[in-house]
Design a protein around this nucleic acid. Structure first.
Length: 287
DNA sequence: CGGATTGTTCTTCC
DNA sequence: CGGAAGAACAATCC
């Protein structure tokens, strides 16, 4: 669920809340989240966060006192952060009711980090695919290096990307979902970008021209920037902790709109399976 | 109850 | 060995 705009939203919200605050208590509710690291709590105690970086959908928290240590966090499908302080809650996520928020930690809370000013950061993750792990700089750099460029970047090298994928025989959808090729797009924004660029999701990557590739990457970047501006996308029961849904949902052209009319040509939007994922597209104007 | 669900990684197959 | 397809991960919903 969380793709680049949603993860970036969470990053910005956390930046304004947790930097520089001393970590007084760490509680791990489910060891799977922390990779069964027995020393996870010990590594964070007494530290304070210096900054939060993001590449694609991966977050890295750095520390004030320890240069060679990072907290890597991936939300995967259902991970979510909530920060609770005297003024209330900030954060983001989905499948959250007001009742869940009021009762933190709840049954999906996997880790809680308490700060000296009384604030508490909760990491919830229903399906347990997400992770929080403490790594050294070398490991963090290695993880960072696996990501391709983000479509939102100003200086995206389209030619280099074209050279990289021009012989790939898989679908363009699979290529765009591959984080090592392009970082940040997930199932929702890939479908949207392909619709915007008028390209069928099941087209073979090697059959796309440089122009088409450029078009779909640019569309992906624009769509994700717009989504970030309006607080991300709500799919199913998403609400953020302020009880507000992500506002990009109403801008979606094809995702989860199977059976509805294509806003461009009026033909019916179909849902199929491409690259193993539910895929929405207009069979008439996407070629 | 079978099938599907956002992301990523591992396994299997060719 | 590399690439690609599919399974797996876990919980929940319809």
């Amino acid at each position: 669920m969380p793709e680049l705009p949603e993860v970036e939203t969470v990053r910005l919200q956390l930046l304004s809340k947790i930097l520089g605050k001393k970590i007084e208590k760490v509680k791990v509710f489910n060891e799977k989240t922390t990779g069964k690291d027995k020393n996870f709590e010990k590594k964070l105690l007494g530290q304070s966060f210096l900054y939060i970086e993001r590449v694609g959908k991966l977050l890295a928290f750095s520390f004030e006192k320890t240069e060679n240590q990072f907290l890597l966090v991936h939300l995967k499908m259902t991970g979510q952060f909530f920060y609770l302080d005297k003024e209330g809650l900030i954060g983001g996520g989905h499948l959250v009711t007001e009742k869940d928020i009021k009762n933190l930690p709840n049954k999906h809370t996997r880790v809680a980090i308490s700060f000296s000013d009384g604030g508490v950061l909760f990491f919830n993750d229903m399906r347990l695919f997400g992770f929080m792990k403490v790594v050294d700089k070398k490991t963090k750099d290695l993880a960072w290096g696996k990501f391709g460029p983000e479509p939102t970047g100003e200086d995206f090298d389209f030619k280099a990307l074209f050279e990289r994928v021009k012989n790939k025989k898989t679908s363009i959808k699979a290529t765009l979902l591959d984080q090592s090729i392009v970082a940040g797009l997930g199932n929702i924004y890939v479908d949207e970008a392909l619709w915007q660029a008028k390209i069928r999701p099941d087209r073979k990557t090697n059959e796309l021209s440089l122009g088409e590739l450029k078009k779909v990457i640019k569309a992906g970047g624009e769509i994700m920037k717009k989504s970030l501006e309006v607080g991300g996308t709500t799919f199913k029961d998403f609400v953020n902790v302020q009880g507000k849904t992500g506002n990009y949902t109403k801008y979606l052209k094809v995702f989860d709109r199977q059976g509805e009319k294509c806003p461009r040509c009026g033909k019916v939007i179909e849902k199929t399976r491409v690259a193993g994922r539910g895929t929405h597209f207009c069979p008439h104007c996407q070629k």
